[in-house]
């Protein structure tokens, strides 16, 4: 990773922080926040972020997933992009301050822990990775939006029980809109995660079979499946048992925390994603050793 590429991502992070600050100030402070700064900082941040991913993608010739920092950048780009599109309707603008603050904090933590050393991957692995990662990240983006909506729901619900705090509840969207956003983001994110996991399992099977490992013993697969089962249960209680309100909001927040923990522990702290370039060669190496 060149210093210029790194600088692009650093500038984007600073601009996201500026955007989050402007949004929070607009919510709790007096008067309307300067619209040019508000939209300018977000567009510039997303633009620089896109430039970083494009530069990394061009350098690797495919999706930018060569290093863990790339993975974090791609994941946050999808989550930020999905949210920026979702919050366009006026009724949902109030959710922004909560989401962007969480976004910047999450990005900071992940950035601090993710390394930028390259991970070796073969060309076959690249194909499966793209098929696996694009839907998984879309799913995670959906869950991030759902969690933002859930957190705002809890705040707004509490505020509405204290109507004299009009200056605050006036700036947040209606409860029903938040609940609908939460539900929509979940119902779109879950199928995407399913597709991504199926592709991931198929890839893991191919990659681990020659090594003599069981694919289901891979911590990444276990982590992914855990998240999948949790969201399957959340969707079940939401759609079948019609859970709504506070309980449903807490579930989506818990689900996203679980996703983050799974993402951080499995993708950042374990080295299991260093799949050999050529499984057959690796098996031969093992035999030789």
């Amino acid at each position: 990773m060149t210093p210029v590429q790194l600088a692009l991502l650093q500038c984007a992070t600073v601009l996201y922080a500026v955007h989050a600050f402007v949004r929070v100030r607009g919510m709790v402070g007096r008067g309307r926040a300067c619209p040019q700064l508000r939209w300018g900082s977000l567009l510039a941040a997303l633009g620089l972020h896109t430039c970083f991913l494009a530069a990394r993608g061009l350098a690797s010739g495919t999706l930018p997933i060569d290093t863990r920092l790339d993975s974090v950048a791609l994941f946050s780009w999808v989550a930020g992009g999905v949210f920026a599109l979702c919050e366009r309707p006026a009724q949902l603008q109030g959710i922004g301050p909560v989401f962007w603050t969480a976004f910047v904090l999450g990005l900071g933590v992940m950035w601090a822990t993710a390394g930028s050393e390259p991970m070796s991957r073969g060309s076959l692995a690249r194909f499966w990775l793209v098929l696996h990662l694009v839907p998984v990240y879309l799913g995670y983006g959906g869950f991030a939006v759902a969690a933002g909506a859930g957190a705002t729901y809890l705040v707004q619900e509490r505020l509405l029980h204290h109507p004299s705090r009009a200056a605050l509840w006036r700036r947040l969207p209606p409860l029903e809109s938040l609940e609908r956003l939460d539900r929509t983001a979940l119902t779109l994110g879950f199928p995407a995660l399913t597709v991504g996991l199926v592709a991931g399992v198929l890839w893991a099977q191919q990659a681990t079979a020659p090594l003599g490992h069981a694919w289901y013993a891979d911590p990444k697969v276990v982590g992914g499946l855990l998240v999948w089962f949790f969201y399957a249960a959340v969707l079940h209680v939401r759609l079948r048992a019609r859970w709504c309100g506070r309980r449903a909001a807490w579930l989506t927040i818990l689900g996203f925390l679980l996703t983050l923990v799974s993402f951080a522990t499995v993708h950042v702290y374990t080295s299991s994603d260093v799949t050999p370039d050529d499984p057959a060669q690796a098996a031969a190496d093992r035999g030789a050793s």
Binding site: Q91, L160, P163, A166, R170, P173, P174
Partner: peptide, 26 residues
């Protein structure tokens, strides 16, 4: 009106009820 909060909120009982309802229902 656009640069300040002078027109913020509602200032009668009936319109406050509508405003509160509008923050619960879409």
């Amino acid at each position: 009106r656009t640069r300040t909060e002078i027109g913020a909120g509602r200032a009668s009982i009936g319109s406050v009820a509508v405003e509160l309802a509008g923050h619960i229902f879409e």
